[in-house]
């Protein structure tokens, strides 16, 4: 199957809205375009669904994409996106993490997944900030913990009132 072309323009990646469904309904539809985050583009390249055109340059390999946009890609978010998308969840990359929608529904956010590597150190104040971020998305907080084999375990964090 012929690969879809995704364009890099200014600071974002985009393709025609007509490609939305065949590209796993990733990204945000804005007018006649679908806008992608770098992590979403990385996923689509990995799935061999797209090539990226940045001016005259054509990128069709994961490694080349990673080298070219290494400063823009959040690998932790990418790993969570990949893990969840591969089991059927619709997801969106947001500044605070990965927004996870109810399975099978494109827009019904249920979790804000915030990724951490197993060797990271955090504090509870940050957890509280993540909780506030999740509330802004009308979602619950999910900590996505990535081990050294890139397996991910999820923990739901709920506020309890006594």
């Amino acid at each position: 199957m012929e690969k879809v072309v995704v364009y890099k323009e200014n600071n974002y990646f985009w393709t025609s809205k007509n490609n939305y469904n065949i590209l796993y309904k990733l990204g945000k539809v804005v007018g006649r375009r679908v806008i992608y985050s770098p992590e979403e583009v990385l996923y689509l390249i990995e799935k061999e669904k797209i090539i990226v055109k940045d001016g005259d340059k054509v990128i069709d390999s994961k490694m080349e994409f990673l080298y070219t946009y290494k400063n823009n890609i959040n690998i932790k978010k990418f790993l969570v996106l990949r893990r969840l998308r591969d089991v059927g969840y619709y997801v969106d990359i947001v500044p605070e993490g990965v927004l996870v929608h109810m399975k099978g529904e494109r827009w019904n956010p249920i979790y804000l997944a915030v990724p951490y590597h197993e060797y990271e150190i955090i504090d509870w104040e940050n957890i509280l900030k993540h909780l506030e971020s999740a509330k802004r998305y009308k979602s619950k907080l999910l900590l996505a913990l990535i081990d050294i084999e890139l397996d991910i375990v999820f923990y739901e964090v709920l506020e309890l009132r006594f």
Partner: peptide
């Protein structure tokens, strides 16, 4: 979670299968 001599929040944490 305790902050300045008060309880700031209670958090319930559960493993989630996704």
């Amino acid at each position: 979670i305790v902050d300045k001599d008060k309880i700031r929040k209670f958090l319930e944490i559960k493993w989630k299968k996704l």
